[in-house]
Design a protein around this nucleic acid. Sequence first.
DNA 1: GGGCGAGGTCGATGGCGTCCACGGACTGTA
DNA 2: TACAGTCCGTGGACGCCATCGACCTCGCCC
Lengths: 152, 152
Amino acid sequence: MDAIDLALVDLLRGNARLSYAELARQVGLSAPAVHERVGKLESGGVIRAYRAEVEPETVGLGVTALISIVEDSGADTDDVLEAFRAMPEIESCYFMAGVESFLLKARVGTIAELEQLIVRLNRTPGVASTRTSIALSTKWENRPQPVGPSSS
Amino acid sequence: MDAIDLALVDLLRGNARLSYAELARQVGLSAPAVHERVGKLESGGVIRAYRAEVEPETVGLGVTALISIVEDSGADTDDVLEAFRAMPEIESCYFMAGVESFLLKARVGTIAELEQLIVRLNRTPGVASTRTSIALSTKWENRPQPVGPSSS
DNA sequence: GGGCGAGGTCGATGGCGTCCACGGACTGTA
DNA sequence: TACAGTCCGTGGACGCCATCGACCTCGCCC
């Protein structure tokens, strides 16, 4: 994990479809060398995936909500997690410090679907209560912060 | 935006580095046809970007926090937004319904850096108060939900 | 000094991206 | 029905790219 690896990660966070040849030009190595480095970043768990970022409205997912979950005392956190994982609307799931154990980011098409999701969440064993905030608009999301020349 | 476009979007959300030839095989078209469709999805704003998803800890961003912001009455929301945008630690920014106008997701390397960020946020003109929750762990993030055969 | 491993370059080759010309289906008009 | 125009696809061609293997260089350890 040297400066060149960080540069590759930065480049791929900005545009995951850059060719190895282009990456090679940018970091000043040959294409096979870059190919091997990126392969190691992938298998070493640094690069988890390559994803196209989609404008949610255009695929019928116009409603974004953030839902905080208070767990039942004595709930099995793993079971709760598994139940959340089975709900595809839940895009992100953070385990939080504080009274509210989880914060979920959910994306649905309509307010009606959001309502159904909240009902399902409240019915989930281990969930004591939910608190939902609706995002009126997403100013930006998952902006990659340059990690540039840093320590490690 | 027909079923084939949706399939392409799904495939690219799952793996942004699929070749056009591979996409073509999956959807049953020729490579040039897929190339043109994807090009239209990009220029039409459906596909916003292609990003490598990185394990944050491995690039020195091990601390995730969610920060709610209450605006001053009379604050200029655009100015506040611009100030947020200038802080690279803020990965996502949602404009929310409720007392707290914004929800920010920030990623930093250490608690000390988080403290500095919060200080800067509180000093920002237009910001009345902040409320920070720390994510102890990220169970998952930006999981693409299949949009499959849907309406539109 | 000599062997070894990590990590690089170079060269070759097959597949891919991308441009272009062409063709069939659908639509609106006479 | 016949015709022209448009949209959207296919197939072929060509140059670039991904990827493999052979070799090279440097630093390290015995």
